[in-house]
Design a protein around this nucleic acid. Structure first.
Length: 302
RNA sequence: GGUCCUGUAGCUCAGUUGGUAGAGCAAUGGACUGAAAAUCCAUGUGUCGCCGGUUCAAUCCCGGCUGGGACCA
């Protein structure tokens, strides 16, 4: 199995910097595991690394789409695996760095996705209530209903779409072994919750100072709308009210901070419960040295 | 100085014709297989500003004190 180093953690802990330093130490190249940084022009709000910050370490899966395009887990899985392959063949170490838990898990584990061409959305679903949709799904794929709540309309519709292709969501998942497909070391960066929250607040403050408002303005000038997928990201969607004249920059800032904190909490829930993460506390004196040692021993262990 | 309004969960406020209270937001925990920075679920003890009075019983009625606000001098 190919070796893949992975760096995860909540927003604003310092994953990008850690990734670059580890890449320098171990001849690595970085694959971004992030759902927003794929978009060109979404720089400040997505916390994208700058040219200087990359330290000439190659970074893949950043700036690969224009801001009107859509992206999904399946796209990420395909792309990330392609780069893992390529980097490995170059005798370099692939390092996935990012905070999008589902994306990273789908790449590392044996997640399988259907050929989407066979799936279609049924117009009549739009007029049905959550309960009605749930009832339909119970007929077709009762097993899927176990993990989907009635109110989670998005998920119910997705499961119904899969069912249109001839197989079902639960059938696809049953075929999988839920095992890693790479020799992956998953490193998680963490710190005390209060410390993280003040880091987040400071970071958002800085984004505003660095011209986030102008970034949104220029995206809007390019024709992007708040309905586009790219604009669903934190740091972007909060500006809708402001540009419609219904809120102040200060309110936008507070909202971005709150949403970022809530996001960080959800990221912890994912990384703590969905993946086998080896955590390092960035407040500890020698955390980076310890982290390097961990990587070292993993690299030399066959 | 006078009149009136007001003080209930971290915040904004409901409410009890007297039987010790509940929404939204926040917070915390959780789920997650093609929007995932998305979507969804669960969790509410708080001296009902303080002191006293009436009452079997007060957060609610009465009196005083105190914080906030508005208006009149």
């Amino acid at each position: 199995m190919e070796k893949v180093l992975v760096i995860v953690g909540p927003t604003a802990v310092g994953k990008s910097d850690c990734g670059v330093r580890l890449a320098q130490s171990f001849f690595g190249e970085i694959i971004s595991g992030d759902s927003i940084q794929v978009y060109r022009g979404l720089d400040i709000g997505s916390g994208k690394v700058t040219k200087e910050e990359t330290q000439n370490i190659p970074h893949y899966l950043i700036d690969i789409l224009n801001n009107k395009e859509n992206y999904s887990v399946a796209d990420f899985q395909l792309n990330a695996r392609k780069y893992i392959d390529q980097i490995s063949k170059d005798r370099k170490l692939p390092i996935i760095v990012g905070g999008t838990g589902l994306y990273i898990k789908s790449c590392l584990y044996d997640y399988q996705f259907n050929d989407q061409k066979e799936e279609k959305i049924d117009e009549k679903w739009n007029d049905m209530s959550n309960e009605q949709l749930y009832k339909v799904l119970q007929e077709i794929d009762p097993k899927a209903c176990d993990t989907i709540h009635v109110n989670n309309r998005k998920r119910i519709i997705r499961a119904l779409m899969i069912a249109q292709s001839g197989t079902t969501k639960s059938e696809i998942e049953q075929k999988q072994e839920h095992k890693l497909v790479y020799d992956a070391l998953i490193i998680g960066l963490t710190c005390d919750r209060e410390v993280l929250y003040s880091r987040i607040n400071r970071r958002v403050e800085l984004m505003i100072k660095n011209g986030l408002e102008d970034e949104i303005k220029s995206l809007l000038d390019q024709g992007i709308t708040f309905e586009d997928q790219a604009m669903q990201g934190i740091g972007y969607r909060e500006w809708k009210d402001y540009f419609q004249g219904n809120s102040t920059v200060d309110e936008v800032k507070t909202n971005i901070q709150t949403h970022s904190r809530q996001f960080a909490k959800r990221q912890y829930t994912w990384f703590n419960n969905q993946m086998d993460v080896c955590w390092f506390d960035i407040e500890q004196e020698n955390w980076f040295e310890m982290c390097k040692e961990k990587v070292e021993s993993w690299l030399h262990h066959e």
